[in-house]
């Protein structure tokens, strides 16, 4: 039996075939430009940049979990400038109201009529800093906007701009006074990436670069420059490039065998004796979307299990919940997930 015969048994979903065409090659060049530009101000964090691009190209939302000071804001800021996208940042606090994010109707005293004041959610890239510090009604309002991509103010619907990507952050420490996102709301995030500290070599490079930032003269004084001052306002691509990249992701080939892998993993999470809550179908959809985008970023026009395994933790881990016995035995979500991925029976 030949590989051709074996593959002929597969009823693949309709997609383009063949070697990467010129369009895909251009997209790969565009991605490389973005990565180069980001690398000029952000040291390391290649995986985070990849996750951001995956979220951007697939229209999914990203939750970053990490301690403060890991260049989350800088990263999102440089990404927005590189692709010429609008960027807004909201610091979530306990007293934040839904209208502070979505917008509200205000009375114009000149005309004596109400007019709509749009909130910061009307942007392309929204950084929701420390989302778990806000009250559940604020989280709910944002997550609803993320899901429906439209906002209702004063009975009128306003579509959010395209692309619309929410990059939320939460701090794994200092849990006092926070509102943990429930599983149903976490499921809205395509990926939850756990940021780690830079490696020692990367840390040295960060310090070297920071030492060379210098000062900026302003008026009669001067201020110390930050990495934000180093950002180039010249975009590396346009919205057309972004649309082309999103289109290219849709053309990445997904084999039936790959779908079988995903279904198997999803089913294992649902039937695992140590898990109380397994993955929803949305998790499988997210895995395929994210894997396609990763394949494209890696210069491939087809997905392989490497994409699946690389993204499994970010896509699955926040969607599963350990049961009491697993917690009592000291298991973690990551350890159970790895046992699922490494199981071969």
């Amino acid at each position: 039996m030949t590989g051709q015969d074996a593959t002929s048994q597969v009823n693949s979903i309709p997609q383009s075939t063949g070697e990467p065409n010129q369009e895909i090659k251009e997209v790969i060049e565009f991605i490389e430009k973005i990565r180069t530009r980001v690398a000029t101000v952000v040291v390391g964090q290649d995986v985070v940049v990849e996750r951001l691009l995956i979220a951007l190209f697939t229209g999914g939302h990203l939750l970053l979990q990490g301690v403060p000071g890991l260049a989350k804001t800088l990263l999102v800021s440089v990404l927005s400038k590189t692709i010429d996208l609008e960027f807004a940042r909201v610091q979530f606090t306990i007293d934040l109201l839904p209208s502070d994010i979505l917008g509200s109707e205000v009375l114009d005293q000149k005309t004596n009529e109400f007019r709509v004041h749009k909130g910061p959610v009307f942007t392309n890239l929204l950084l929701a800093d420390e989302i778990n510090r806000a009250a559940p009604k604020v989280q709910g309002a944002l997550l609803e906007a993320m899901q429906e991509r439209k906002v209702t103010i004063g009975g009128e619907n306003f579509p959010l701009p395209a692309p619309f990507l929410v990059i939320a952050t939460q701090n794994p420490v200092e849990q006092a006074g926070t509102f943990e996102l429930p599983e149903a709301q976490l499921d809205r995030f395509m990926m939850l990436h756990r940021l780690v500290y830079p490696k020692p070599e990367e840390e040295k490079e960060i310090l070297r670069r920071n030492a060379q930032l210098g000062i900026r003269v302003e008026g009669k004084g001067a201020v110390a420059q930050t990495e934000f001052d180093m950002l180039s306002n010249e975009p590396a691509g346009t919205s057309d490039n972004l649309i082309a990249a999103m289109q290219a992701v849709q053309q990445v080939y997904v084999s039936e065998a790959f779908i079988e892998h995903i279904v198997e993993i999803i089913n294992r999470t649902r039937n695992h004796p140590l898990l109380e809550l397994g993955c929803s179908p949305r998790a499988g959809i997210s895995l395929i979307k994210a894997s396609r985008a990763r394949a494209l970023i890696r210069g491939r026009h087809y997905v392989v299990p490497d994409d699946l395994y690389a993204l499994a933790e970010d896509v699955i881990l926040h969607r599963i919940r350990l049961n009491y016995e697993a917690l009592a035995d000291g298991h973690t979500g990551a350890s159970v997930l790895q046992s699922i991925l490494r199981e071969f029976d």
Binding site: M1, T2, G3, Q4, D5, A6, T7, S8, V10, S12, Q15, S16, T17, G18, E19, Y253, S255, A257, F258, H301, Y302, V303, V304, P305
Partner: peptide, 15 residues
């Protein structure tokens, strides 16, 4: 054999 589009496997894989 399993993951590339079928049109590219003309070289065939000897399973």
């Amino acid at each position: 054999w399993l993951h590339r589009p079928s049109s590219e496997t003309t070289a065939s894989v000897d399973v």
